[in-house]
């Protein structure tokens, strides 16, 4: 009985982000996929950055897109792998933050519209209007490829909000679940990040007799590394450049395959203005908030 508290004391480990003590660079990422895949991927990134920059780097997993942005905003993480929309939101919240780099694929990212095969809707160059009145699931509420862009293109094509287009609209939470739900028939259709689809397909995780891609959206810019400007105060004035350089020089196939990206290219805040415009046009970002923080 008496020994238990001592055991508890011995268990003392700090699990929360150690922002106040740190010469540690803490980073996070939007949880757009199964957590075990994310941990696998970002542990590799952690090691790569530590080696490349010679500083302590630590990855903190979060449970929601909003939590990733909040952590970035509150300086609990200083660097993050955001999607197009979450990156725009984060940079509005932290005005001096900067886009460092994006994946080669992120310059022209796509969303796949999935269909359960029992719907008998076939792939085509145009999105088949037979999907109207069915059940449809997005990914996370804050996802670019899983929500913002597919919603935008659906509105463009059919001139109505998703709630009015479909019998039922869901938010699965992440891309892996979107695939599962459409495959299981829980939803007839869904919108998914094309990279997640391709990589799960390659890993043999998808039963293509049950779910297939019926349409792909036009291209848009998506994922990017964003860092807080005040990192300079902590790690020196050239830290953002060093980080950017580290991503651009990343050529370890194992790390790249984990994203999966074929490489990284430089990117800038302005590259994401189209995303901001779209978010504003479908009412996901208030014009007021945006204009108050240019």
């Amino acid at each position: 009985m008496r020994r238990l508290p001592i055991a508890l004391l011995l268990c003392v480990i700090f699990w929360f982000p150690k922002t106040t003590l740190s010469q540690t660079l803490t980073f996070s990422a939007i949880p757009d996929q199964d957590e075990s895949r994310l941990i696998e991927r970002f542990t590799l990134v952690e090691l790569y950055l530590e080696e490349k920059l010679g500083i302590d780097v630590s990855y903190v997993p979060v449970k929601s897109y909003a939590a990733a942005i909040t952590a970035f905003r509150n300086d609990q993480v200083q660097l993050a792998w955001f999607g197009g929309l979450s990156g725009v939101q984060a940079r509005l919240a932290v005005p001096d933050s900067e886009v460092l780099a994006q994946g080669i694929e992120d310059q022209a990212f796509k969303t796949y519209i999935l269909a359960n095969t029992e719907t008998e809707v076939e792939p085509g160059p145009e999105l088949d209007p037979r999907i109207l009145g069915s059940t449809f699931t997005f990914g996370s509420k804050g996802s670019t490829s899983g929500r913002l862009m597919p919603e935008f293109f659906l509105r463009e094509l059919f001139r109505h909000a998703p709630d009015e287009l479909f019998d039922r609209v869901g938010f699965s939470g992440d891309h892996s679940r979107t695939i599962d739900l459409v495959e299981a028939g829980a939803f007839e259709f869904g919108a998914v990040n094309y990279e997640v689809w391709e990589s799960e397909l390659a890993r043999g995780q998808i039963d293509t007799s049950k779910v297939q891609v019926i349409w792909e959206t036009p291209a848009y810019p998506d994922y990017q590394w964003t860092a807080r400007g005040d990192l300079r105060a902590q790690f020196g004035p050239d830290i953002l450049n060093r980080l950017r350089q580290a991503f651009l020089e990343l050529d370890d196939p194992k790390v790249l395959a984990a994203f999966p990206r074929s490489g990284f290219v430089p990117a800038h805040n302005d590259d994401y203005l189209p995303v901001l415009d779209i978010a504003r046009s479908i009412g996901l970002i208030d014009p007021a908030r945006e204009s108050s923080r240019p």
Partner: peptide, 20 residues
């Protein structure tokens, strides 16, 4: 045992982090 638990708990949860 409560005081011991509480002290242990305070060690485990870093209460000073990130409050600004």
């Amino acid at each position: 045992l409560l005081p011991i638990y509480i002290i242990a708990a305070m060690f485990i949860l870093p209460l000073n982090s990130g409050i600004e």
